[in-house]
Design a binder for these strands. Structure first.
Lengths: 132, 132
DNA sequence: ATCAATTGCGTTATGCTATAACGTGTGCAA
DNA sequence: TTGCACACGTTATAGCATAACGCAATTGAT
């Protein structure tokens, strides 16, 4: 899937996420966009919904937050399962992919005849800098 | 870690989860325990906090719900990373472990000098029965 | 025995996360 | 030009989680 032209709201939300150091909650995004006319959570959630669909933003389930995809330009859907390491101290998020992990998980679901739609892999802990 | 004797509230919450067909939200648990004197969310959350700590209950981050561990008797902390397949149609949850997946993820974190605390793997989709 | 520390518990209040439901405007294709 | 799809704005509400206070029971060191 190729990413269509973003609408005004989608662009605003995406820009905020791209410029952010780490993941942001929907309400944090809302606050950052009040100056641009945002007034309600739905404006953010609706934009996020599309950005997630386009694969340019990821949702971090374990911390109810969102990050811009680490692969500028391409569509993350093509990278297989995306995994995240989330530092609980500084909030930094690192995105990575491991084909062997994908493979093992997909083997398992195949054996179960389970039909996967969305897979979440999130490792919370301390990043190198914070663990030191 | 061995599981200590559960308190009254912890037992009530655990029993509800064990008897449930699938994962339950904290508020659903609360409703099921109103007859037993539960009145406030905190009574549930406090019990869950301990049950999670003892490893007899798991939290499903992607659906804000909780399930009893699938390994009656033992401590899930000893099984390495736990993965879940969650059916979005019927709500059924299957818990599994894959040492190779653990291994790959732990290799990755080691390479990054990231210190993992808690890892989440959740596959949402359709179970065999619902996909048919 | 007694005091201090810990732990569980109950209650009220509050904060954070997410969506329902309704209506408006715009662009485009039949 | 009418009908549809989509983005958008607004208000209200639902759902998830914790802060802060106080009390009671337990434990364990002195």
């Amino acid at each position: 899937m190729t990413t269509p032209q973003l609408t005004k709201n989608q662009s605003l939300v995406f820009d905020v996420l791209e410029k952010a150091e780490g993941p942001l909650s929907a309400y944090t995004i809302l606050d950052k966009l009040r100056d641009h006319g945002f007034r309600a959570p739905l404006q953010v959630y609706r934009a996020l919904e599309k950005l997630l669909e386009y694969g340019v933003v990821h949702r971090l389930e374990s911390i109810n937050s969102f990050v811009a995809c680490a692969h500028p330009g391409d569509d993350c859907h093509s990278h297989g399962i995306v995994a995240f390491a989330i530092c609980e101290s500084c909030g930094q998020v690192t995105e990575f992919h491991d084909h062997e992990v994908d493979h093992r998980l997909m083997e398992w679901v195949r054996g179960q005849k389970f039909k996967p739609a969305k897979t979440t892999i999130e490792i919370r802990g301390l990043c190198k800098a914070c663990a030191a």
